[in-house]
Amino acid sequence: MEKEFYIDLIYKSFSGDLSEEEQNQLENWLSESEANKKEADVLEKTWQLSANFSKDFEINLDAEFAQLQDRIDLDEKGNVQEAIVKTMPTIRKKSWWKPLSVAAAVLLLAAAVFIFNQNPATAEMLAMETLEGEMKEVALADGSKVWLNENSKLTYPDAMNGEERRVTLTGEAFFDITKNPSKPFIIDTRDAEVKVLGTSFEVRAIDDEIRTEVVVKTGRVSLGKKNDLKPIELTANQKGIYNSKTGKKLNYEVKNLNSISWQNNMLEFNDLPLEKVLEDVENHFGIKVILENQDLLKCKYGSLFPDAKEAEVLKGISSVFKMKLVESGERTYRLKGGDCQNTSE
């Protein structure tokens, strides 16, 4: 028989099963010579290696995830709107929904910030920076105040006599802005700008982020790209997102505003899963909380601590779920036992 015939048998053995007769034919052929064996070997090894197929991709996981996050946000926004339509009368009772609120609090997660100074040449730019664990207060020329959180940098003019008040930020800061309708206050980040329509807000801008996120506590703030003709306007309890890659903007209601708790020392939990609550508590106080009863992770918890104190918050949470609070090491607490008796859902 031709060599081709046996080679075909070998191919066939890879793709399916050989009959007993074919199997015998092949074995006889293999025992005939070393060359035949080698040929079979090469095919066999090639077949083996082919299972390890792989390919190198250049991937920026942050950017890829941001894209996915956009989709989730958009999807959840749809859900939220639906929920609001259904429950409008009960949600409306919140007092800070009043449209006349004058204070605005903003959380902004944004890209690295480049410094663009659009103030008139008469003003000199100053800069204030904080190190890890450091917080600084900056008084601006117009009487506004800025609290810089750790690892942040604010660049601002020493005088504010232009048509607008413009500063740039990298990092995280809380702004308390002197109201002046004729001179808008604008914060630049690398990709976005935040325009203040109220009087106080918070901005957080983190390096290498494509998305700019703004969370408004009270008041009104607008968010968009540089010189955006149609920025989105955000009001109380709303989160806005601007993606500089896709150019997409969207906004939706948020439940958790504790990311700005460092400034006002207020912790608010609107029926959040306990797991999330404890994460906020850990971040706020810089402590470690170990939940022993993992069955409670998903239990919903709601409460407001206007001036949060460690002991008070921990006791509050543990008592609701009938857990025992034990200090177990430096800055570490254990929550033992308890059950999910609050059936808020």
Binding site: F53, K55, F57, I59, L61, E64, F65, L68, E275, K276
Partner: peptide, 24 residues
């Protein structure tokens, strides 16, 4: 349990692997 960090970690762990799988 709605843990977004865990979600991101799963993404980081398998995103590339799935890309390669799909690319085949």
């Amino acid at each position: 349990a709605d843990d977004q960090k865990a979600y991101r970690a799963l993404f980081d762990r398998y995103y590339k692997y799935l890309l390669v799988t799909s690319y085949a």
